[in-house]
Design a protein around this nucleic acid. Structure first.
Length: 584
DNA sequence: GCGATCAGCT
DNA sequence: CACAGCTGATCGC
């Protein structure tokens, strides 16, 4: 297909024709859920959101609040200067056509098969979970999907073909060296020299592009500053009696969609409520009374039902990696590499314009290889800017996991009567304790609620290693907040007959990596005779350099950050980064 | 007695 | 800090 061969967002009717159209069949739920839900309801109180402290509102940065009018986003000039040709990519996406047919007479199995994509192993589809089976489709929703069946593509610049594998391995090398090149102090802030990377990749320097401030967005942010005090907008709640309104950055302009916005009741003009993943600061406000239509992936919908009691008729499960037409806009879910059941949303308008909402994500070369994500094609990116500051550097997840596995086996070799407590979120950080359990070939103890949650993540090997019996294994999963000296003491006291020592593993991106000379990526946070707490720089958000590469590769026209946006000075700083990245 | 929300804390 | 909560208190039904 020829639709994506140039930079602009042109309409191309042929595009639509060459892609195969498939229809998802609505399957009604037979509510086969068990009574475990009742038990989970007892835990509801834990799902409330944290509010900002009054003291925080009072004493922080009053000057900045009232004196700075700041902008946040940028528009890349994409106009018709001749210089544009310099940066023009030639992208080809080969999409073999397949026949479209009526599904009315197909068997259940065939229907299921049709909703699945044939991408590479990177984006393998899992079979539907039995927990929530409904694909609710009220009449207003069209459920035609456009299936992308091939991720083969070639990238060339000025007639030179680029080997994508080479390109991405260059990036990985750069990221690795920059992550480990930290000194013990925070003295050097080494960031990757993108210009040289791009020069290596393309064999010649790339001309910088002029960047223009986005006045419209500037205005939207300053409006928001007037409505809300500086601080964390994600947790902001207005004074009693004042209803909080949905901020602009949670709405997708030109649509009736919002993303991760459940704290605002019925939002005016919104028909479709998208949820990117099951973390409380994103689903906050969602409960069984929810009466609109939520759109998310299978895993997240499972969790919304079992943990929050959201009714299946209020949820539409969307398939991964294909476009589904919702209220006239195509939407594709792309794995976000954050927690299980996390996805990004790619919205495609009838005229071809693309908007990407990353939700929470960790940028990786695998994500950039996705056939739906290509350079110079995206208009606006709503970006997870959690670690958008140059001092946030951490190693690739695999390396950190390897370190954790090594540490645990070393400790167990030295003293087999050691209990290993691995910190995790309700959803998130699974790879750490899973890898340890796989290496030791042992089971994983988790509490009853977490047992249910982990069994909904469609990970068979993980599921079969879980146990609710703490005596069956010395790998225990605990909440991240429980990985402290006193709480680990309490924990080991319960099992003191069997264990003489306990180590805590705290895998969080806030742990700055420390150069220990080798490949060990951990630090000792606290230590006593029988208790040691280890911090591992294991992050499920992008590091600064990963964000940088992500943006430098995709080159959107406009960036709207979704985290750390409560303070104008921080927004200014991020805006400065965005300008640099887009001009490379 | 239950669920929802809030304050405080990590 | 910010992440993604957790615990305990209070309020409405």
């Amino acid at each position: 297909m020829a639709a994506n061969e140039n930079n602009s967002f042109t309409e191309d009717k042929d595009d639509q024709k060459t892609l195969s159209l498939k229809r998802i069949i609505t399957v009604s739920s037979d509510d086969d859920d068990n009574n475990e839900d009742k038990e989970s309801n007892k835990r509801q109180r834990s799902l409330s959101l944290t509010k900002i402290k009054p003291s925080q509102l009072m004493n922080k940065q009053p000057v900045i609040r009232n004196t700075r009018q700041t902008s946040l986003s940028i528009i890349r000039t994409n106009s018709d200067e001749g210089d544009n040709e310099e940066r023009k990519w030639n992208l080809k996406m080969i999409t073999p056509s397949s026949s479209s047919s009526s599904n009315q007479t197909l068997s259940k199995q065939q229907k299921k098969k049709m909703t699945q994509t044939k991408l590479t192993t990177l984006f393998k589809q899992k079979p539907s979970s039995p927990l929530v089976r409904t694909v609710s489709s009220p009449s207003i929703v069209k459920t035609e999907t456009v299936t992308v069946t091939d991720r083969t593509r070639t990238v060339s610049l000025d007639g030179i073909d680029i080997d994508e594998e080479e390109l991405f391995s260059q990036w990985n090398d750069q990221l690795n060296t920059s992550a480990s090149a930290t000194t013990t102090t925070q003295a050097t802030t080494k960031t990757v020299d993108s210009k040289s990377v791009w020069k290596q990749i393309f064999g010649k320097p790339v001309k910088p592009k002029p960047i223009v401030d986005d006045e419209e967005l500037k205005e939207q942010w300053s409006q928001l500053d007037k409505e809300q005090p500086p601080g964390n907008h994600r947790f902001y709640n207005p004074p009693a009696g004042v209803k909080r309104t949905c901020p602009f950055y949670k709405k997708i302009p030109g649509t009736t969609f919002c993303v991760d916005a459940f704290n605002f009741g019925n939002i005016e003009g919104i028909q479709a409520y998208f949820l990117s993943h099951f973390h409380s600061d994103h689903y906050g406000g969602l409960n069984k009374k929810f009466s609109n239509m939520l759109y998310s992936n299978q895993i997240t919908c499972n969790l919304c039902k079992s943990q929050l009691g959201v009714r299946p008729e209020n949820m539409t499960i969307l398939p991964m990696n294909v476009f589904t037409n919702i209220h006239g806009i195509d939407v594709a879910l792309i794995d976000a590499n954050h927690c299980p059941g996390s996805n990004m949303f790619l919205f495609r308008f009838p005229n071809g314009k693309l908007i990407l909402h990353t939700g929470d994500f960790r940028a990786a070369s695998d994500i950039l290889k996705h056939p739906l994500l290509q350079p110079n094609q995206i208009d606006t990116i709503y970006l997870d800017t959690t670690y958008c500051d140059s001092h946030y550097r951490f190693p690739p997840q695999d390396e950190v996991i390897e370190s954790a596995v090594e540490l645990v086996s070393d400790v167990l070799k030295e003293n087999s009567k050691t209990l290993v407590a691995v910190g995790a979120y309700l959803v998130g950080k699974e790879r750490v304790f899973h890898a340890i359990a796989k290496a030791l070939d042992c089971k994983i103890f988790v509490e009853a609620r977490k047992f249910r949650v982990l069994n909904q993540l469609e990970n068979d090997d993980l599921s079969k290693r879980l146990t609710k019996n703490p005596h069956e294994t010395n790998i225990h999963v605990v909440g991240m907040g429980s990985v402290t000296q006193p709480m680990l003491q309490t924990h080991i006291d319960k099992y003191s007959l069997k264990y003489s020592k306990i180590i805590g593993i705290k895998p969080t991106g806030w742990t700055t990596p420390r150069s220990t000379g080798g490949s060990k990526h951990y630090s000792i946070e606290t230590k006593s005779s029988n208790i040691t707490v280890y911090g591992f720089p294991y992050s499920e958000h992008s590091s600064f350099n990963e964000l940088k590469f992500f943006i430098e590769y995709l080159k959107p026209k406009r960036i709207i950050p979704t985290v750390n946006i409560g303070r104008a000075n921080i927004r200014d700083k991020m805006n400065g980064y965005f300008k640099q990245w887009l001009s490379v």
